[in-house]
């Protein structure tokens, strides 16, 4: 797809052009191109190199004399020593897990920036699940129409009272009359911004 074909295609919004970018076929082609590029791009990355491993480990191991900073993020002498140690262990053929175990043995669970407690990992997931469930329930309840049921006797009473009040006051121009709800509710607030927009002073 070149720029030359894009320009007329952009004008095809009026649904007159022959091959349109907006057609279903075009979208399917697009999906194929995107999926192909993503799959190729994320799988043909080659094996993780020694530098990648060192970079990852440096970012996970906490600097022993700092607060919440990895050894990659600190220039303290202890952090520099630990970085050298990581290089040494990687070159000695240790796996990432073994090196992390070594750090935990040396400095305790606090030695890694990735929290080892499963609670902290489960909390956001559980919280997200609860939130999605609650939203689903709320939406389905709303859709089932409990809010938009037929007007009840109470609603009718409100209308009757409002009409009676207005005819007493002799208001003929209903649009400008203020709606005074006998129950003290702000009926004006119900239709968008009518009242509040009216009393803006700008």
């Amino acid at each position: 797809m070149s720029a030359a074909t894009l320009a007329p295609a952009a004008r095809s919004r009026n649904r007159r052009a022959g091959f349109a970018l907006t057609s279903r076929w075009s979208w399917m082609l697009l999906a194929l191109v995107v999926a192909g590029a993503l799959v190729f791009g994320s799988t043909h990355s080659g094996s993780t190199t020694r530098a990648d491993r060192i970079r990852y480990l440096d970012s996970v191991i906490k600097c022993p004399v700092c607060e919440d900073v990895s050894i990659a993020g600190s220039n303290a002498q202890q952090a520099r020593n630990l970085r050298a140690k990581v290089v040494e262990l990687v070159d000695a053929g240790r796996t990432d897990a073994q090196i992390e175990k070594y750090v935990v043995a040396q400095f305790g669970t606090d030695g890694l920036l990735r929290p080892t407690s499963p609670v902290i990992w489960l909390l956001p997931i559980a919280g997200g699940a609860v939130a999605v469930l609650a939203l689903g329930v709320a939406l389905s309840r709303r859709r089932s129409g409990s809010y938009e049921s037929a007007p009840g006797s109470e609603d009718e009473a409100i209308v009757v009272a409002a009409i009676a009040g207005r005819s007493r006051a002799g208001t003929r121009n209903g649009a400008n009359a203020s709606l005074d709800d006998p129950f003290g509710r702000d009926l004006n607030g119900l239709d968008g911004r009518s009242v509040d927009a009216g009393d803006r002073d700008r």
Partner: peptide
């Protein structure tokens, strides 16, 4: 479908260019 067509194709071309340029990783 109509409004997103051109931006989506631009995005797809950028994506392909990135992959062609050697950028890897999801």
């Amino acid at each position: 479908r109509r409004r997103l067509a051109v931006p989506a194709w631009i995005a797809a071309l950028v994506l392909v260019a990135c992959v062609a340029g050697g950028i890897r990783g999801l």
